[in-house]
Simulated assay, not measured.
Amino acid sequence: MNADEWLRAFAAELRQRRVRDDDARHVVAEAATHLRDGGGDPAVVFGLPGRYAAAIAESIGATPPPVPAAPGPVRLHARGITKRYGRRTVLRDAGLTVRAGQIAAIVGANGCGKSTFLRICAGLISPDAGEVTVTGRLGYCPQQGGTADFLLPDEHFVLVGAGGGLARGPARRAGRAAARKLGWDAPGDVLTRHLSGGTRQKLNLTMSTLTEPDVLLLDEPYQGFDRGTYVDFWDQLGRLRDAGRAIVVVTHLLNQLDRVDLVLDLTPAGGTVRDGDAGWGGRA
Rank of each mutant, 00 (worst) to 15 (best):
G61L: 05
L35T: 07
G136Q: 00
A31L: 08
D128W: 14
V28F: 04
R92Y: 14
Y85M: 13
P142M: 09
A29N: 00
G136D: 02
P73S: 07
G136V: 05
T133I: 14
V107A: 03
G38K: 15
I81C: 09
I81W: 08
A69D: 13
E30L: 03
E30G: 01
L76I: 03
A78P: 03
Q102C: 07
I103E: 03
R99S: 13
I103L: 07
F117K: 00
R75T: 03
D41N: 13
A54M: 11
S59P: 10
Q144K: 06
A53T: 13
R87I: 09
A105C: 10
K83Q: 14
A109E: 04
Y85A: 10
R99Y: 05
V28G: 04
L138A: 03
A104Y: 02
T97K: 04
Y52W: 12
T63L: 03
R99G: 11
A104S: 10
C121M: 02
G130E: 10
P49R: 09
G95K: 01
A129L: 07
I60T: 01
P68Y: 01
I56E: 08
L48F: 11
G80T: 07
I103D: 01
P42D: 15
G72L: 09
G146C: 11
Y52R: 09
R51H: 13
F46V: 08
T133S: 09
A104Q: 02
T89H: 05
A109T: 08
G40W: 15
P127E: 13
S126K: 15
A69P: 02
G86Q: 07
R92M: 14
T135W: 01
P49V: 13
G95W: 06
T33I: 08
A105Y: 10
A94F: 05
A62G: 11
S126T: 15
A43C: 12
V132P: 02
G95F: 01
